[in-house]
Simulated assay, not measured.
Amino acid sequence: MTEIEMKYGFPLFTRATPLVSLGKNEKIVISDIWAFWDYVVKKASKDRKEEDFLGSLLEQAKHFYKTAEASPVKSQPLLYYYSFLNFSISQK
């Protein structure tokens, strides 16, 4: 089996730790920002009910964001607002 270097990030985490450290000016290489935040929500949630609630907020944020990207310019600000609003709530 090929060993993966520690410098490569999500989705190829190589550390077996339940903690997610996003501080200390560390760079995390990710391929899908939404999948990464889904991972963070799952690791930070204390129980299944909280995980489901925060996951649904993150999913709504993702849908609003993708809809905003495909919408006319005049509609984008409101859709981005709802996306970031749901995203910020999902991060507690």
Rank of each mutant, 00 (worst) to 15 (best):
Q76T: 05
H63V: 06
I28C: 04
L22F: 09
W34K: 02
M6Q: 15
S45L: 02
S56L: 09
V41R: 00
W37L: 11
N25E: 12
N86W: 00
E50T: 03
L79K: 10
E50W: 01
E51S: 09
A35E: 13
L12Q: 13
S21K: 14
D32C: 07
T14C: 09
N86I: 04
E5H: 13
D38N: 15
E59T: 14
L57Q: 00
A44C: 09
V29G: 08
A68I: 09
Q76Y: 02
R15I: 14
S88H: 08
D52W: 01
S75K: 13
F64K: 07
A16E: 15
Y81T: 08
D52V: 07
T2A: 11
K42V: 08
F84D: 10
L12W: 14
D38I: 05
A68N: 01
K46M: 11
A35C: 08
S83G: 11
G55I: 04
L78H: 10
N25Q: 12
L22V: 10
F84G: 11
M1N: 12
Y82T: 00
D47L: 03
M6F: 12
K43P: 02
G9F: 07
S90R: 05
Y81E: 06
T67Y: 05
F64D: 01
E3C: 12
L54H: 00
K49F: 06
L58I: 00
D32Y: 01
S31Y: 09
S45I: 02
S21D: 15
N86V: 03
K92L: 11
S71V: 01
K66L: 14
F36E: 03
P77W: 07
V29C: 08
K62P: 04
H63E: 10
E3R: 13
P18W: 04
V29Q: 12
E69G: 13
A44S: 11
Y8L: 06
D47K: 04
Q91F: 08
K24H: 14
D52T: 07
F84P: 05
Y8M: 10
Y81M: 11
I30V: 12
G55R: 00
S90C: 12
L54E: 00
S71K: 10
Y82E: 03
A35L: 08
W34R: 02
V29H: 15
E3W: 07
V40P: 06
L78V: 12
E26D: 10
Y82P: 04
I4L: 10
R15S: 14
K49C: 01
L54D: 04
T2P: 15
K92G: 14
K62T: 05
D52Y: 00
F10E: 10
G55C: 02
T14Q: 13
P77M: 04
W34A: 04
P11H: 05
